[in-house]
Amino acid sequence: MSYPDRKDPVANLRSDAGLASALRVSLARLTRRLRRQAAGNSLTPTQVATLAAVDRHPGMTPGELAEHEKVQPPSMTRVIAVLEERGLLSRTPHPTDRRQVSLTVTEAGSALLKEERRRRDAWLAQRLKELTPEEKAVLRQAAPILEKLSRI
């Protein structure tokens, strides 16, 4: 397999491999910077992602959540325990299967997520102010495409 020429970024973007590499690096860097904006909450990225997933899909079982987040059930059990211990997540009996529990985000968990999103959005909005109108237009077109890539 040949790798794109790292010395010519424009040539890199002409091939799928070059575009993939550029996107991977840029998105990873942006993700790291966004995570730093939430450093005050003392949760790990996995814990935040788990809390956000339950917020979007209330009533999930731990097994469904592990599958959704692409982690092993024992790992998810540990994450759930920490979030529950911190009062951010609660377990309730499953409505149809007594062997299962359903997960929901507590008021404290919702407040934490709201603040986390506010801080990240504020940081990103500030960065967007530094862009030209043309660059913002390109990002508006790219946003649905990036969302599609995240779901494939």
Rank of each mutant, 00 (worst) to 15 (best):
S2N: 11
Y3E: 14
D5S: 05
K7A: 12
K7H: 11
D8L: 00
P9D: 03
A11E: 11
A11L: 10
A11D: 08
L13P: 00
S15T: 15
D16N: 07
A22L: 11
V25N: 09
S26P: 00
L27M: 15
A28W: 10
R29H: 08
R29M: 04
L30S: 07
L30P: 00
T31C: 12
L34W: 06
A39V: 07
G40C: 04
N41V: 13
N41G: 04
T44R: 10
P45E: 04
P45H: 07
A49I: 03
T50K: 03
A53V: 09
A53L: 13
V54Y: 10
D55I: 00
R56A: 15
H57Y: 15
H57L: 14
M60P: 02
P62F: 06
G63E: 10
G63I: 01
G63R: 13
E64S: 06
E64M: 06
L65Q: 06
L65S: 05
A66K: 01
A66I: 01
E69L: 13
V71C: 05
Q72P: 00
S75M: 05
T77Y: 11
R78F: 00
V79K: 01
I80K: 01
I80P: 01
A81H: 10
V82Y: 00
E85I: 02
R86Q: 09
L88A: 02
L89V: 04
L89G: 02
R91C: 02
R91L: 07
R91I: 01
T92C: 03
P95W: 14
P95V: 15
R99H: 14
Q100E: 14
V101H: 09
L103R: 06
T104K: 07
T104G: 08
V105L: 11
V105F: 11
T106V: 02
E107T: 13
E107A: 15
S110F: 10
A111I: 09
L112N: 03
L112V: 08
L113Q: 09
L113D: 06
L113P: 05
E115C: 03
E115P: 07
E116N: 13
E116K: 05
R117D: 12
R118S: 07
R118V: 00
R119K: 13
R119V: 11
A122Y: 04
A122E: 13
A122C: 02
L124I: 07
A125T: 01
Q126Y: 05
Q126V: 02
R127F: 05
R127I: 04
R127S: 04
K129D: 09
K129E: 12
E130D: 12
L131D: 00
K136N: 01
K136V: 10
K136D: 00
A137I: 00
L139W: 05
R140T: 12
A142C: 06
A142W: 10
A143C: 13
P144Q: 08
P144Y: 08
L146Q: 05
L146H: 04
L149S: 08
S150E: 09
R151N: 12
I152K: 13
